[in-house]
Write a protein that binds this DNA or RNA. Structure first.
Length: 410
DNA sequence: TCTGGGGTCCTAGGACCC
DNA sequence: TCTGGGGTCCTAGGACCC
């Protein structure tokens, strides 16, 4: 993803510049940012390959064994949620499944209680990546100033286009539906990313919404504060404890009060978003910060009794991270491990190496030194390996590290 | 029938250096 | 001998997002 997108800290810094005499003082007079969000993306991708599931409650998030089988007469047989056993959460639910109260990120077992007859499909990332590429190419045909924010979402700066906003929104939607042979999206068009993101959600699915600053009191302030990107469950709970439920409630508070309750950075940010202020640019390129792999076991493993199984998983994860680094052309200076115990408590340990590495053997060595520092008090639910502080082999940073090392050995 | 996997950014304390 | 800050790096944990 990218560095500035979800950072209220960065946002605050830039706004301070704008108020003062910093370099960002002269902004273009009229920005227009589109947020394009695919509708129930994974489910829609699956429908395009299994059209017989159209109109049927369906969820994505199963295991490979949930893949449909082909019967002798050529028709497909699908797994049902009621037959699901094991751990996991849903990745997506079709709109028909949502009518039963099923939501993405819901534990699959909970969903099975709500909609036992719903079809369950395993995640098929290859398929989604294919449609994602087509979707993004379609958006790029309208404006190439695009910020990637996930497999099914982009921001797009359309300030330089001459058409009116409604024409642009329609052009974006038509381009996407044609490029993906029928996948729909929802478009929000507004003066900044904050409002664009809020507006794309207002007429979902397959709609578009145009928002201006004048719409703030009438259309934005009635929305729940938690709709704002950056106000998660914790912050929302804290806000609710002060009687702040909507964005309008938030806008009624003075900035000093918000800063007093939520801190300098977050408080100032809350004040600004409540008033629809956000001048983050659309960032078209960003370098990755870390790469990681993790796995949740089918059953909790014991550090000693299940040593072999843990070792196998550990090696596989290191191999995967090494392969990811190699494929994308990075090396890492910071290797870390993550463990989740049966009580869901998560611990991490990491180590900064004297020089960047990328091969599986060095990765395993660094990661096992981290694991040794963890007190194995309970059985283990999840194991993860992460490579951070990335650089490209042969880059300036990489060369500097090597030079430092040589000096040490002289 | 609890709670996936891959990310980003922020905070805070301690070490260490100037 | 005592008493300071500021800056940067490292580490661990946590909030948040898709």
């Amino acid at each position: 993803m990218n560095a500035t997108n979800r950072s209220h800290g960065a946002l605050v810094k830039r706004l301070e510049f704008k108020d003062g005499c910093g370099p960002d003082r002269k902004l273009p007079p009229m920005r227009r940012i589109a947020h394009i969000d695919m509708d129930a993306f994974f489910a829609s991708c699956e429908l395009s390959q299994y059209p017989e599931l159209r109109g049927v409650p369906m969820v994505v998030g199963g295991r490979r064994s949930d893949a449909p089988t082909v019967k002798p007469d050529g028709t497909r047989e699908f797994a049902r949620l009621r037959d699901y056993v094991g751990r996991g959460v849903l990745t997506t639910a079709s709109y028909e499944a949502r009518k039963f109260g099923v939501r993405s990120a819901m534990p699959t077992m909970t969903a099975a209680r709500l909609a036992p007859d719903a079809i369950i499909l395993p995640v098929n990332f290859e398929l989604y990546r294919k449609h994602s590429r087509l979707f993004k190419e379609a958006v790029a045909s309208v404006s190439s100033v695009i910020e990637d924010i996930g497999i099914d979402e982009v921001y797009c700066d359309v300030s330089m286009l001459e058409d009116d906003s409604e024409t642009i929104a329609r052009r974006l939607k038509t381009a996407v539906v044609e490029a993906t042979s029928g996948l729909t999206c929802s478009v929000g068009l507004a003066p900044n990313k904050l409002l664009a993101k809020l507006s794309s959600e207002m007429q979902k699915p397959d709609g578009f919404t145009i928002l201006t600053m004048e719409d703030l009191p009438g259309r934005v302030w009635p929305m729940a504060a938690s709709k704002i990107n950056g106000i998660g469950p914790k912050a929302n709970e804290r806000l609710a404890s002060f009687g702040i439920d909507t964005i309008g409630d938030l806008a009624e508070r003075e900035e000093p009060w918000l800063i007093e309750k939520f801190g300098r950075s977050y408080g100032a940010w809350l004040y600004r978003v409540a008033h629809g202020l956000d001048d983050r640019p659309v960032v078209t390129y960003s370098e990755p910060v870390s790469m990681s792999r993790e796995t949740t076991f089918e059953r909790d493993l014991h550090a000693v009794r299940d040593r072999e199984e843990l070792g196998t998983a550990f090696k596989a994860l290191c191999d995967q991270v090494a392969a990811d680094l190699a494929r994308k052309g990075y090396v890492s200076k910071k290797i870390g491990v993550k463990l989740r115990f049966d009580d869901f408590k998560t611990v991490t340990r990491d180590v900064t190496l004297p020089s960047a590495i990328g091969d599986a053997r060095s990765l395993r060595k660094a990661a096992s030194s981290c694991i040794k520092r963890i007190d194995m008090v309970r059985t283990i639910r999840l194991l993860g390996i992460k490579a951070g502080t990335l650089s490209r082999p042969g880059s300036v940073e990489d060369a500097e590290d090597s030079a430092q090392l040589e000096l040490k050995f002289e």
